[in-house]
Structure formats: structure tokens, C-alpha cells
């Protein structure tokens, strides 16, 4: 469904991604893990067009997405839950959800379905989005992304800054979303959380993919080495 080949990304003169290769098959849940600064968020921003990419490096459903602007990529069926949630402060909860439907793709997801998954949002639908607790805001951000009925949902650091019990709550949504047939990529610093939902894992380090495989096929040591950049013999 999504194929990334030899992708580089730059912030000005600073190169943040070096020849990243990865693929996502339809229906999979993929986890991308890595420490702070490993390039995970840059990869997400590049996939969605917020950071420019060039060449034929990103393909999605046979379409070349690299070089496309963000709004076109979103219309092609990608949606992102951005790092830091990024709700629109002057919009209510419901408006934040409704604006997610702006790309105008038909599908299973609508207001009722999002409210059914996160009932608390229904109670607070008329509050300002930013008046909610961190966990509830994260639910709005996930719901907002689902409202576009994406083929592929990218979740960037959805556990960041939340209490463990809230994270658990949020993560129960992932299998539900998957069950509706949406393909998911979660980006996490929290390895355990990510491995618990993932079919396959990519580990990133210093802008490169350092390890990939099925969670059950990888050893703790391999993951730790790939995550922290330790040589095997040191681990």
C-alpha cells in the first residue's frame, strides 16, 4: 500500500533522513520506534508532505506522493494524528472533528462512530477543543484524523505526555480502528506500547532504519541495540 524507497529529508542544510526504506501492506499495523531525534517525526512529516520530499521516493496505492503538497496527500487517503495533537483552539470539539471530514472521502467513519468509540467526547462536544484534558484532546485528534476515512492512519507520538493509564485507554482504540480495515502506522518512543499493537516494527536511529522485523521475532537485545545505537557486543 505504502512504499518508501531511499527517502532523504532535509531541514535547510541539515539532513534528517538518510535513504529510508520501508513498506506498509494493507491492513497491517506498523510501529516505528526510536529515541528522540531518530527521525520518526520527520518521516511522518515527510510522508504527509509537511516537509518536502523529492523524486519517486514515496508511493501510495500506485500513486507517487513524493513532491506533492500536504493537502493533496491527505486527499489521496493518508491522515495523520500530529505530534502534540494540534487541535484548533478556536473550534469546539465537534468542529474539530467535523473539519477532519474536509477531504470529503466517504467511508465508515463519521461523528456518531467517533462518539461511540470515545463517548466522553460526545458529552463535551460543545467545549473548546483545547479546554479538554490531554487524553481527551488526543481522542479528538485521533477522531479528527479518522473523520477523513483514511486508508492509512499515521499516529505520531500519541502517548507523549500522557499518564500511563490514559495511554492504555487510548491504545485500546488502535485494534478497534484496525478492525474497521484501516491500516495504521504508530510512531512511538514507548517501545512496549508500540510492540503490543504492531504486526511489524521498524526501529530508527539517526535518520536511518536500524532494525526491522516482527515483534515476536526480535530479541530485547536487538531492539535495545537498534534503539540506542549500541554495538551488539556492547549490549
Amino acid at each position: 500500500m505504502l512504499t518508501v524507497s531511499n527517502l532523504d529529508a532535509y531541514y535547510g542544510d541539515f539532513q534528517a533522513l538518510f535513504g529510508v526504506d520501508l513498506y506498509v501492506d494493507a491492513g497491517e499495523t506498523i510501529a516505528i520506534i526510536g529515541s528522540n531525534g531518530a527521525g520518526k517525526s520527520t518521516l511522518m512529516r515527510t510522508l504527509t508532505g509537511l516537509t518536502p520530499s523529492s523524486g519517486d521516493t514515496i508511493r501510495f496505492d500506485g500513486q507517487v506522493l513524493s513532491g506533492q503538497p500536504a493537502h493533496a496527500i491527505v486527499k489521496a487517503g493518508l491522515a495523520m494524528v500530529p505530534e502534540g495533537r494540534k487541535l484548533f483552539p478556536s473550534l469546539s470539539v465537534e468542529e474539530n472533528l467535523l473539519i477532519g471530514a474536509n477531504p470529503g472521502r466517504d467511508g465508515l467513519w463519521n461523528l456518531d462512530k467517533v462518539y461511540a468509540m470515545f463517548p466522553v467526547l460526545s458529552e463535551r462536544r460543545n467545549n473548546a477543543g483545547t479546554a479538554l484534558s490531554g487524553g481527551q484532546q488526543q481522542m479528538v485528534a485521533i477522531g479528527r484524523a479518522l473523520m477523513s476515512n483514511p486508508k492509512l492512519l499515521l499516529c505520531d507520538e500519541i502517548s507523549l505526555g500522557l499518564a500511563p493509564i490514559i495511554i492504555k485507554d487510548i491504545y485500546t482504540a488502535i485494534p478497534q480502528i484496525k478492525a474497521e480495515g484501516t491500516t495504521i502506522v504508530v510512531v512511538e518512543q514507548d517501545i512496549n506500547q508500540a510492540l503490543s499493537v504492531a504486526d511489524r516494527v521498524y526501529c530508527m536511529q539517526e535518520g536511518r532504519v536500524s532494525l526491522t522485523g516482527r515483534p515476536d521475532a526480535l530479541t530485547r537485545e536487538e531492539i535495545t541495540a537498534a534503539y540506542f545505537g549500541l554495538e551488539k557486543e556492547d549490549a
Binding site: P69, V74, P82, L91, E95, L98, N102
Partner: peptide
């Protein structure tokens, strides 16, 4: 209206609104 929502969202955050499929 939907257009009004987009205008207010753009006022809030020009970057994130692109993720809503909106062309700045």
C-alpha cells in the same frame, strides 16, 4: 459553515490545517 470552520482553523494553525486537506 464549513468554509468558516476552515477559515477559523487556518487562523489558528496554518500548518495543521493542511492535514485537513486544505490548501492554504
Amino acid at each position: 459553515t464549513g468554509v468558516g470552520r476552515l477559515l477559523r482553523a487556518t487562523s489558528d494553525d496554518q500548518t495543521t490545517v493542511k492535514l485537513m486537506g486544505a490548501n492554504n
